[in-house]
């Protein structure tokens, strides 16, 4: 088991290095933009005096590595910002100050995070259950009409962009049939039932396309396992089809599904941005689109870093899970 612990530790170290590299890239790319960074950061309505103040706070006269160092300091130790008269303390992890909305980026993100987490993790449950379920069913019914039907449906699912599914669901379910009211976010802690009802459509629109990918992968992995010799041996011993599909073939799909889940997590986060915008959910995706439209640099940088953090951590966790699920993986 020491090999495994070593592997997990190495993976964790790799994760930290990747996060560091991403922070450098993101910082450099966004703060070395063409144009006056202080003016862009401060917003179009800022007076020259305010712009000057922002330039000072961002240490724009210092070389880039010094500025990045200040940024890191804020992230790990907090930072003080003077906004005209008062001094604002931004405690760690401080991602900077949005001069345009006069809010700390960390606070802004924390306020929106529950919405996005509810959306993404809820949708993840839906796409795993739906996707793996469909995959198992079509591997079981292979060669029959129902399998062809399922394959066709999942293919159509793969080809439909999140926002098209969302738009259709919104129009049909809320607009025409009036089965559900237009989604309005209710916090889980306020009313769990309303939380789930209101997130049902966003979950479905985000999950359907992912579920289709999982159905294809599960089916392919299971068919591959079914062709192996040990399955033939099981059959020869008289093990029933239900047990072969449910216990032995499904095991073969386990590791690839974990890998795909990590690999698609980044894509799903991108899909969450679309879902939030479409359904008007006040999550970090919607906030990011807003920040992009008004070019609120500190918010954009903060959001990209936070989302990158989640994606990198998800990948690392999945790698470790993958090693647990499939002992054949070489732990290097």
């Amino acid at each position: 088991m020491t090999g495994f612990v070593g592997f997990a530790l190495r993976r964790a170290l790799g994760m930290v290095i990747t996060l560091f590299a991403i922070s450098v890239i993101v910082y450099v790319v966004f703060y070395v933009t063409p144009g006056n960074v202080a003016q862009i950061t401060c917003g179009p309505r800022c007076s020259p005096a305010q712009v000057h103040q922002v330039a000072e706070q961002l240490h724009l006269d210092d070389p880039l590595y010094v500025r990045y160092w200040h940024f890191l300091q804020g992230l790990f130790a907090g930072q003080d910002y003077s906004t005209g008269t008062a001094v604002q303390h931004c405690s760690a992890p401080c991602l900077g100050l949005s001069y345009q909305s006069d809010q700390q980026v960390t606070q802004l993100i924390l306020a929106k995070l529950p919405v996005s987490l509810s959306l993404v993790f809820g949708a993840m449950v839906v796409w795993l259950v739906l996707g793996v379920g469909t995959g198992v069913l079509s591997a079981w019914r292979r060669g029959r009409l129902s399998e062809r039907l399922l394959t066709g449906i999942t293919l159509a699912g793969v080809a439909t962009p999140v926002f098209v599914i969302g738009l259709v669901l919104l129009i049909v379910v809320c607009g025409e049939l009036e089965l559900l009211p237009f989604p309005q976010y209710v916090a889980l802690t306020d009313d769990p039932e309303q939380w789930a009802w209101n997130l049902l459509l966003p979950w479905l629109s985000l999950a359907l396309i992912e579920a289709a990918a999982f159905a294809r992968l599960t089916r392919a992995s299971m068919l591959e396992t079914l062709a192996e010799d040990h399955i033939r041996t099981f059959r020869a011993y008289g093990v029933g089809e239900r047990s072969i599909i449910g216990r032995h073939a499904l095991r073969g799909a386990f590791a690839p599904v974990i890998a795909l889940n990590a690999n698609n997590f980044g894509g799903a986060v991108g899909g969450a941005v679309l879902t939030e915008t479409l359904f008007g959910l006040p999550g970090i995706g919607q906030e990011l689109v807003h920040a992009v439209n008004v070019v609120d640099l500190p918010v954009v940088v903060g959001m990209v870093l936070v989302i990158g953090f989640f994606v990198v951590v998800a990948n690392a966790v999945a790698d470790v899970l993958y090693a647990v699920a499939d002992r054949r993986v070489v732990l290097t």
Partner: peptide
């Protein structure tokens, strides 16, 4: 590192600047 970057998010942010 490139694989770890979420495409939609990065594209969204880059297009802004």
């Amino acid at each position: 590192i490139i694989v770890a970057l979420p495409l939609m998010i990065m594209a969204l942010a880059l297009l802004a600047i």
